[in-house]
Design a protein around this nucleic acid. Structure first.
Lengths: 285, 285
DNA sequence: GTTCCGCATGAATCGATAG
DNA sequence: ACTATCGATTCATGCGGAA
C-alpha cells in the first residue's frame, strides 16, 4: 500500500482553493487561538475571529466529502474577566453555512498549564467540535474501543495471582500483549470525554496537541488510504499520525519554521505493506 | 449558629418576585432540560427554551448580590442528529441581559447513560456554566483545595479498576494517567473539570446530581451564613448541601411530590455546630 | 466482619412503525 | 411530509444478600 503525505507551505485559505471538491475524509485542526501566538499568525482579535474563520470554513465545507467529518479543536480565551463568545458564535455561523453541529467532545488535559488566579482555576479542558456535511457520515466505532469495566473487575483480579508472578515484567510495564490477547471481546465503546496528558515534546509549537488526539479521530472517522487534512498543521502532528495509520494526508502551514519542522518528521512519500503485524496488535487501544 | 432553610412550593418565576434585590450569594440550579422529564415539568420544546428561561434569569440577576455567582447545570440534547443550539444561544442572550459569562466548568459523569448508536458515543459530560453580576465576585479557592501527597495514596486505592486498566492500556498509544501529577505539595487547587458519578439506583429519591456537586460550589463561592438559592430544587439536594455546610438556603419547586420529598430531608430550621467531620472530607471532589 | 456476585437503574438516542 | 410513540441498545455504579 502506498500513501501520500503532502506538507504545503502557504496561507491555508489560498491553498485550500487548490483542492478538489469532496475529496477529504477527515479535517482535523487546531487553528491559532484568538489574540494568541501574535508573533506567528499576527494575532487575530477575538472580536474578529468569526469573521476571519468563516471564509476558511466555507472552503473546508467544499473540499470535505459528504461522508466526511470536520473536528475543530478550539477553546475560547478569557477577555476582560469573561469567556469570550467567539467559539459559540462560530458554531452558530457555521451552521448557517451548512455545517451540522453533530457533537462536542471534551478533551480533558490532565497536566494542564500551571498557574493561579484570584477568580478562576486552571483551565484543563478544550472543545473538540464535530461538524458534518450530512447526517450520514462514516464512523468506525470499533477502532477506538476500550476495555470494559467488567473485564477490569473480573478478569484482571482472577489472573492477578498466578499471572502477575509468571510475567511480572509485562504487568509492571503496563499490560502488554499478554492480556490484550487474552480477551478479545471485553471492550466497550468510549464516551465523548477524552483524557490525555498534553505532550511536552513540541515546545516550539505553542498550540501543540498530543499525537494521540488526531490518532483517535483518524481511527474513528477514516479507513486506511482515506484522506486527512489539517489546514493549520503547525509542527506536523496530524500528518505524522495519519502517516503512521496509513492514511493519506495534506497539511498546510503558513510559517516556514513550522513547515520545515513538519517536513523533517514526515517522509513525504512512503511505501509499506498492508499487513497487520503482531507489533501493531499491541498498539490497539 | 443558626441557619434557615426555606423550601417553597410554586412556580419559580412568581416566587422569585417575592425575593429582595441583591439578597443571594449563590444560585445553583439544574433547570429541567428541554423536552426531558416531560411527566414532571411538561417538557419545554428546545426551540422555545431560551424564550422560556430568559424571564427567570432576569429575576435571578435581580436577586443576586453583586458579589454573588450563578452556576447553571445544563446540557443540550440531540435533535435530529445535531446538538441543539439553545444552550449557547442562552449564553449569548443572558449576556445581553447583563450577565457576565465568567467560566464554564465541565462535569464529567463517570456513569453516564448507556446505549449505542451508529453516529455518536455516549454523552458523559454536562456544562456547569458560571455567570456573574460583576467582575468582583467572592471566590474562596482554598475551601476546595485537593489534598495531594499522602492523600494521593488513598486516592489511588480508590481509583476504580476500570480506570486503572483503561489508563494502563492507553499508555502505548500516548494516553495515560500521569501519577506523577500528584507532587509533593499537600494541597493543590483543582481545575475546571469535575469528576463524579451521578447518584443512581436504590434510593428513595434519585437526585439528578450528586450532593458533592452543589457542595463544591457552595464551598467555593459562599461562606457560612451566606444565602444559597435553587429555583428548581427537585428533590432538595442543593438545600441539603447548603444546610450541612451551615449556609442559609431557599429552594423553590413546582412539583408537589418533589417539594414534599425535599421537605422530608431537610430540617426547616436547625442549630448546629460548625465542624467539618471526617465524613465531609470524603465528599470533597 | 469482609469480600464477592448479581441485579436494577439511570437528565439518552436512533430508527422503525403508526396516526 | 410531519409528529408521536416504542423497542432495542448499552455500561458504571451501589445496594443487598450470600459465601
Amino acid at each position: 500500500m502506498e500513501i501520500d503525505t503532502k506538507i504545503v507551505l502557504g496561507d491555508c485559505y489560498k491553498r485550500l482553493k487548490e483542492l478538489e471538491d469532496n475529496s477529504i475524509d477527515l479535517i482535523f485542526t487546531s487553528p491559532p487561538y484568538a489574540d494568541q501566538r501574535k508573533n506567528t499568525y499576527g494575532g487575530i482579535h477575538p472580536d474578529k475571529y468569526v469573521e476571519w474563520f468563516l471564509p476558511i470554513s466555507k472552503e473546508l465545507l467544499r473540499v470535505l466529502k459528504p461522508t466526511g467529518t470536520f473536528v475543530l479543536n478550539i477553546k475560547e480565551r478569557v477577555v476582560d474577566g469573561e469567556r469570550h463568545t467567539y467559539v459559540i458564535e462560530l458554531i452558530l455561523e457555521m451552521r448557517k453555512q451548512g455545517w451540522l453541529w453533530t457533537e462536542e467532545f471534551i478533551w480533558h488535559k490532565k497536566n494542564c498549564y500551571p498557574g493561579k488566579w484570584p477568580n478562576r482555576f486552571r483551565d484543563s479542558w478544550e472543545r473538540l467540535i464535530q461538524f458534518n456535511k450530512s447526517k450520514h457520515f462514516n464512523m468506525f466505532q470499533e477502532s477506538v474501543m476500550v476495555p470494559t469495566g467488567e473485564w477490569a473487575k473480573t478478569r484482571l483480579k482472577r489472573l492477578s495471582d498466578t499471572d502477575k508472578i509468571r510475567d511480572e515484567s509485562k504487568v509492571g510495564s503496563g499490560f502488554g500483549k499478554n492480556i490484550s490477547n487474552w480477551v478479545n471481546r471485553d471492550y466497550a465503546y468510549p464516551t465523548n470525554v477524552l483524557h490525555t496528558a498534553t505532550e511536552c515534546a513540541n515546545k516550539n509549537h505553542s498550540a501543540a496537541f498530543p499525537e494521540a488526539l488526531p490518532s483517535w479521530f483518524i481511527k474513528l472517522f477514516t479507513q486506511e488510504e482515506d484522506w486527512v487534512l489539517d489546514p493549520f498543521l503547525g509542527s506536523g502532528t496530524t500528518c505524522k499520525a495519519a502517516q503512521k495509520l496509513m492514511r493519506n494526508s495534506i497539511g498546510i502551514e503558513l510559517q516556514r519554521s513550522y513547515y520545515e519542522m513538519a517536513l523533517k518528521d514526515v517522509e513525504p512519500r512512503i511505501m509499506a505493506l498492508c499487513e497487520e503485524t503482531e507489533e501493531d496488535e499491541k498498539y490497539r487501544i
